[in-house]
Design a protein around this nucleic acid. Structure first.
Lengths: 354, 354
DNA sequence: CTGAAAGCGCTTACAG
DNA sequence: CTGAAAGCGCTTACAG
């Protein structure tokens, strides 16, 4: 039957017949300094009124809001798991994430359409005084562009899957080189010597794709007698099916294809189906990420299982420790998380060794 | 080269040689009352210092933080699209979502393990003074349980896909009855007369499943000469494959199965495959939701496409308008969003009409 | 046209 | 052991 909606500390203090200061101290646990009896009265009053500290006040007093801005959309199961790791880790430290992503998820490329827009989004978060920010590649670009203005806010930023020449933030990535070697070994061990790679668009926001492809190329060509050739999608990423088709019908006549993510692997499946090529009898296909649909494909896709949940946890831990330290950093760190080859049924021995 | 990290209004005022009050008014756009020259100085100073209003202060002064708590995990593509709709709508009103979900997404049932935990989560949001809350069913249960304590906070709550006898919040749901009729009509038109339904667990948090199944049963049995029987999963939802198997081998010998979501439909596919039953030749299967994998199944699944993005937008609009109005509501509303039958290849004519 | 003052809800030295 | 006062960053009647 309380008439005022939200009880103030003043109400508690009055009810317990103590000063606001005393009430504040007692409710913060500073109980040694007060008479048992006083403490009881205050605690009881607070309970009865249902008083809860206004965390916003803490925010303006300490400069810490215990919130972290998270600029990652649930693009696919990889990013969803990353988000899961972030949320869990943040939650365990009693931090809350504030997430921003607008636009229909079906048209994800929009997320990188406009660095100006990205900057505005980052600014909105900063206006809310988030203690730190975690972002995926497209926003990292916007951040990089506006770094001079943003740096003065001294808000730690951790970026996932995005590396640049002059890093302006801590970074967490998958250990691409190591994974590439494992894939190359798997393919070469099966006897494949004509190898294709289908990459994604390799836009600025996809430095991971660039690195993944080149790491793979290096690892494969380290073995002398291999022919290999790489393809990539167009600017908008709309021609996956065509590129896959082109690749399979190329004069190289590849017996194995490495797709930079499972998404591209799906295009290869599609094209192979159209061409009447059997997987893995005619063509071996290997993906990357182990997205939720990979095991369901027919045949089940051989791929590299990244550790998105771990990436999320690691990323969150990194921001939290940067927040903790509170110092402006100049030497940004890079954490590399391993990934594991998962051999399923889309890869098999090369029939010919022409 | 600013030495102090974040500029205060005081700094701006000093730089522009005006009082803090004047600076505040000018920066809020109250420029008519001030000399053009003064305005320019203040605006310029603010720009140079990179001053940005501390939104937390607004929060404590007005009692409005322009944030909405969102208790929805990205469980599957249905919920992801809902989140997308919510984020977009909220963003357009310059509100920001604060999302909470912990626990590994792989073990989603945890979300409903503990209403006490759910209550604590809601409380954490409230402590941050969110202006409103949107939640999915498992949290709705926690909210319902603790409604008496929570009501005093006067924070509007909108619940998705959860209906109870005594609603304690506005609700947005799919128009189950209408969808059920469309499905029933489709199945009956194809000549099926022995119909099975596989529901989910139908826990308290799955009132939608209960309603969906019963709506379907009603719609089907409205046609006189039909035999129908329903199954549902066990408490933990772990026996989908077995239930599907059981259903297909039941003495009913159903020629069509309606699965309460595409997830259950996938179990039916699996069981049919094991039994050597062809879809749709031997058994027609129809799902619900049109999840991201539905069109990829073989054969592509006939299902009901819900409108999650629209549900998200509608839900967000509802909280926003409740926040706007600011009054405690007693007559909670229920919005029903339509869903559309998508006929693909998993349903076909009944061969026999025994 | 502009400033001084009180206030939002709470915390924390500083007195007593 | 407890209270009065100043302060966090900003806003807004109220004076002048």
């Amino acid at each position: 039957m309380a008439s005022s909606s939200v009880p103030r500390l003043k109400d508690v203090a009055e009810k317990a017949k103590v000063s606001v200061g005393a009430a504040s101290r007692i409710l913060r646990g500073d109980q040694d300094r007060f008479a048992q009896d006083t403490c009881d009265r205050v605690l009881e009053a607070a309970r009865e009124l249902g008083w809860r500290r206004n965390l916003l006040v803490n925010g303006i007093q300490t400069g810490r809001t215990q919130t972290v801005g998270v600029l990652i959309p649930p693009y696919d199961s990889f990013w969803v798991s990353i988000l899961s790791g972030i949320h869990t880790r943040l939650s365990s430290a009693d931090y809350l994430p504030i997430t921003v992503w607008s636009g229909d998820l079906k048209h994800m490329p929009h997320f990188e359409a406009d660095n100006q827009e990205g900057f505005r989004t980052i600014t909105r978060l900063l206006d809310r005084r988030v203690d730190g920010i975690i972002m995926w590649p497209p926003f990292s670009l916007a951040y990089h562009d506006h770094f001079p203005e943003l740096r003065e806010r001294r808000v730690p930023v951790v970026v996932i899957d995005h590396r640049t020449e002059n890093p302006v933030a801590d970074t967490v990535v998958t250990n691409e080189a190591k994974a590439a070697k494992a894939i190359a070994k798997h393919i070469l061990d099966l006897g494949h010597r004509r190898v294709a790679c289908i990459s994604s668009r390799e836009t600025l926001a996809q430095s991971w794709a660039l690195e993944r492809r080149t790491s793979f190329e290096e690892a494969v060509t380290a073995c002398g007698d291999v022919e290999m050739k790489s393809w990539r999608l167009n600017e908008t990423g709309s021609n996956g099916a065509e590129v896959a088709y082109e690749l399979l019908t190329d004069s190289l006549k590849p017996s194995a294809v490495f797709a930079v993510t499972d998404h591209e692997a799906a295009f290869v499946y599609e094209a192979a189906h159209k061409l009447g090529l059997k997987i893995p009898e005619d063509i071996s296909v290997i993906g990357f990420a182990d997205l939720d649909f990979a095991a369901q494909m027919s045949p089940p896709l051989t791929t590299v299982r990244q550790r998105p949940y771990e990436i999320g946890v690691e990323t969150a831990s990194l921001v939290l420790s940067r927040i903790e330290t509170g110092e402006a950093v100049s030497d940004f760190s890079t954490s590399k998380i391993d990934a594991d080859l998962v051999v399923r049924e889309s890869t098999g021995p090369a029939k010919d060794r022409a």
